[in-house]
Design a protein around this nucleic acid. Structure first.
Length: 816
RNA sequence: GCCCGGGUGGCGGAAUUGGUAGACGCGACGGACUUAAAAUCCGUUGGCUCCUUGAGCCGUGAGGGUUCGACUCCCUCCCCGGGCACCA
């Protein structure tokens, strides 16, 4: 069998595609329908592309090629997320400035992507580190500042001792640094925050309209963590102060047997009785220390204040405690303890011998243990006894509101975004500190505030940015009073640049200024044409980081009238992780990393693309198989071989009618088109294989294959294996590029089967088959047909047929 | 603990959403070509039982249910993966 020389062929077409500048170009404004297919742009590490990148990027490439051939104006861009800690840490290790090697890394990535044949509109390429790009990142930040969404606050924040910088909550989930995995510490640092919480409700509500995987939506919902309830005031026995408590379970208020304050609560020490103060103070100090170290008590701890509060609903006197299990930064920092109906309150009450009063009874379950935390029916609750939890919340709420003791209240788990990093390799925050005017934003016309090129930029670890040492850069004039002032030396987190890059692709244009590579001009008309992103493909790891931040920025820009849509990404698709051949996550230390370059060398880019699509469903996590790729490689060689045979045949024979071929080809067009639209590429490839086998058998039986029909198959193959398909296309004397060809159309009428193969069942068990040309059969016809079958003697002759179930074109079931 | 996914041959996975379970690929076995190997091609390949072809039974994590018919729907349980975790 002829094997094809993928090395030669791939090189050849890369050169041709490279020269055709307008080949994959997206046109601003067109009579064609637009579609915006976006990849999560990579961070250009020194390692180069990963098989995970190849997976997602191949999927979008197939779709982009498919849509282009279907007459769409396709925007399919690529760029680089090149700011951030990994680059900086790597640079430090190599003792180089990121500015010197990041462009090299980008070049490497670009070359790899080109070698894979990805059909990006390269004229729209951006990097978050381009000054023209981050000028706008800074500008959007300034707009947020002007809108009052940016504030500086000293707060306990997660600090990564290895990366030597403060982190956002989203980056320190589970007490681990999102980037390097080190355990984070709590540090008190003055940090810039952005009020993402101001958008909490909209970020939550607008999830509804998005075509996103349900788990990602759920993760965002949980992260935003909206809780609706009531705040109510408890009098304190012997004091004028009141304790404000937040609860979502007002229905359990008759079961409140104690109050717990956070260690940060301002009343904690104030209301403590003299005998208890010393003990309390010691406890609070101890807990504050632990908090700083990020240590949590495994067991609940707490101390009594000696003071008592009055339950507003029944005037019971209940003890006030202080415990670390009540958080200072959530709700009001004070809770009512209802041990019968809350896990933690129950444990706390058991440990300290506090009273437990059951006030909710289950309606469904009979045997259960306390605490019972679900809704139910009230008991031991005076006039509210007997009503449902839900009703009780409303009624008790209304009563307390009328008495002026409560109000409706909503809290979110989401906290404001800690936006400053004490590192070098990021966008400088465009603010100036003036001794007179305090913090002053930079003037817009002075943007971008360029990151200075320096030799040493070691993080200090003290909470100071390395930029602080670059005196020349720090020294500036106050934009307001023109007096001597200093620049803000902290930089933005890596997430900043990725918050709006999908807009930059649309807005990028050639610069008139020759020194500048490109220019971004905010053009709402273009944005109106292209937005929203129709399909966004990437890994699930950004579910609450990038995807939440980007939605937030987009919503802010929507408020400004800078973008036309509420949401940036209409449809999101998460590709599944590709594991190592051993079924474990790929990692250098495990030595199970598959390098795309090696695979391309051995099997070619088409084989790599197709194999990654064939591994399994795009969304599933699946292991790599070093043997499996041979199957795809064989298939591609067979297609090549088939092409040679058909070419030879074509020069000798005349076209013959072949209804079977017409039927199978038509079916294939249908199946491939549907499969691509549903992103079920693994099944599509299986269909290709079956069809190839069908053609081969025909040829081997001496039948003639019309070359145009074979070339239709090649067109279908093109989005998957563009090099091989294009080369075969050309070898059949076709002069065009397949990119400009129309996608084959299928004939719906031809999809109908000619004969129907019925399964004969007796009491639901398969007993035989028969084939007929009729789709519908009468009972009489069925009986006649069945009598002629061998199974009749065995199963039906002696039996009494109670019922015949007939499913059109599929099944006949005799119930006997 | 809570919230999402998911359990199908030796392996990756199909199954038109209630209608022939195991498509397609890998691997394995047998054969052809070859001095030989690789490559390639052809055939077999869920398990068990019986006998010669062939036939029968079992089989989609486990148990139960609905149905003429269940991988698919319902209930209970087990296991694996992911997310969150003192969030009141």
């Amino acid at each position: 069998m002829n094997k094809y020389n993928f090395r030669k062929i791939e090189k050849k077409w890369q050169r041709i595609w490279q020269r055709k500048k307008e080949l994959w170009q997206a046109f601003d404004f067109s009579r064609k329908s637009k579609i915006y297919i976006l990849d999560m742009f990579p961070y250009p590490s020194g390692e180069g592309l990963h098989v995970g990148h190849v997976e997602g990027y191949t999927a979008t490439d197939i779709l982009s090629r498919f849509y282009r051939m279907n007459g769409y104006n396709v925007l399919h861009p690529m760029g680089f997320d090149a700011f951030g800690l990994p680059a900086e840490n790597f640079a430090l290790k190599m003792k180089k400035n990121p500015m010197t090697f990041v462009p090299k890394n980008i070049e490497h990535f670009r070359q790899q992507m080109k070698s894979l044949g990805f059909s990006y509109d390269w004229q729209r390429e951006i990097s978050t580190t381009d000054p023209e790009y981050y000028k706008w990142t800074q500008l959007i930040f300034l707009k947020m500042y002007q809108a009052g969404l940016v504030y500086e606050k000293e707060a306990p924040i997660n600090f990564c001792p290895s990366c030597k910088t403060g982190l956002a909550d989203e980056e320190a989930v589970g007490g681990r640094c999102e980037r390097c995995g080190s355990a984070t510490e709590i540090k008190f640092l003055k940090q810039w925050h952005i009020k993402i919480t101001a958008y909490a409700d909209r970020l939550l509500e607008d999830l509804e309209e998005l075509d996103w995987p349900e788990n990602v939506k759920e993760m965002q919902r949980n992260w935003i963590g909206k809780s609706e309830g009531y705040e109510l005031l408890f009098d304190i026995d012997g004091y004028d102060d009141k304790i404000n408590v937040f609860t979502t379970r007002l229905d359990t208020i008759f079961g409140a047997t104690f109050i717990v304050l956070s260690i940060h609560h301002p009343l904690a020490l104030k209301i403590a009785k003299p005998d208890y103060v010393l003990n309390l103070e010691e406890y609070i100090q101890e807990q504050l220390k632990k908090e700083k170290l990020g240590i949590f008590d495994k067991e609940l701890t707490g101390v009594f204040t000696g003071a008592y509060a009055i339950n507003p609903i029944n005037k019971f006197k209940i003890p006030i405690w202080v415990s670390s299990y009540v958080l200072g930064h959530y709700g009001t920092g004070a809770i009512m303890g209802v041990p019968a109906h809350d896990e933690r309150d129950y444990k706390f009450a058991k440990k300290f011998g506090l009273e437990v009063i059951e006030v909710i009874k289950a309606t469904q379950k009979k045997n259960y243990e306390l605490p019972f935390i679900e809704d139910g029916v009230l008991i031991n609750s005076n006039e509210y006894t007997g009503i449902s939890s839900q009703e009780a919340r409303e009624k008790i709420g209304q009563k307390l509101i009328n008495d002026g003791l409560a109000k409706k209240s909503v809290y979110y788990k989401l906290r404001d975004w800690i936006f400053s990093r004490q590192r070098y390799w990021g966008e400088p925050i465009p603010l100036v500190r003036c001794p007179k005017c305090k913090v002053v934003p930079v003037k817009e016309k002075d943007l971008p505030i360029l990151l200075p090129k320096v030799k040493s930029y070691e993080p200090t670890g003290t909470g100071e940015s390395p930029l602080k040492n670059i005196k020349k850069w720090v020294k500036t004039k106050c934009p307001k009073c023109n007096g001597p002032a200093e620049r803000e030396t902290q930089t933005m987190p890596q997430w900043a640049g990725s918050c709006w890059y999908y807009l930059a692709y649309i807005l990028k244009q050639k610069s008139k200024n020759k020194k500048q590579k490109y220019e971004i001009i905010w053009d709402i008309k273009k944005l109106k044409y292209w937005l929203p992103v129709d399909l966004y493909v990437g890994g699930v790891e950004h579910a609450v980081l990038h995807l939440l931040y980007a939605r937030f920025w987009h919503k802010f820009l929507y408020n400004l009238g800078w973008v036309p849509t509420k949401e940036p990404f209409k449809r999101l698709f998460n590709q599944g992780l590709i594991l190592g051949p051993d079924g474990q996550k790929m990692s250098k230390s495990r030595g199970n990393v598959i390098n795309p370059d090696d695979v391309i060398k051995e099997y070619g880019a088409d084989a790599l693309r197709m194999f990654e699509m064939f591994l399994g469903p795009l969304e599933a996590e699946k292991p790599w198989s070093t043997e499996g790729i041979k199957g795809i490689s064989r298939f591609l060689n067979r297609v090549w071989d088939l092409a040679q045979r058909i070419k030879i045949q074509d020069s000798r024979s005349k076209i013959q009618e072949d209804k079977e071929l017409d039927y199978e080809l038509n079916k294939l067009i249908y199946e491939v088109s549907q499969g691509i639209l549903n992103l079920r590429f693994n099944v599509v490839i299986a269909k290709f294989m079956i069809f190839e086998d069908f053609l081969r058998k025909k040829i081997e039986a001496g039948r003639f294959i019309d070359k145009e029909k074979f070339l239709t198959f090649i067109k279908l193959l093109f989005p998957f294996a563009p090099y091989l398909a294009q080369e075969i296309w050309q070898r059949f004397n076709k002069k065009t590029l397949l990119d400009y060809e129309n996608w084959p159309k299928y004939d719906e009428r031809l999809l109908k089967k000619k004969t129907f193969k019925y399964v004969i069942q007796v009491n639901g068990k398969k007993r035989g088959f028969f084939e007929t040309e009729k789709e519908s059969l009468t009972e009489k016809e069925i009986k006649e047909l069945v009598q002629s079958l061998p199974l009749y003697e065995k199963y039906l002759k002696k039996a009494k047929i109670k019922k015949i179930i007939f499913i059109k074109g599929k099944v006949i079931n005799f119930v006997i």
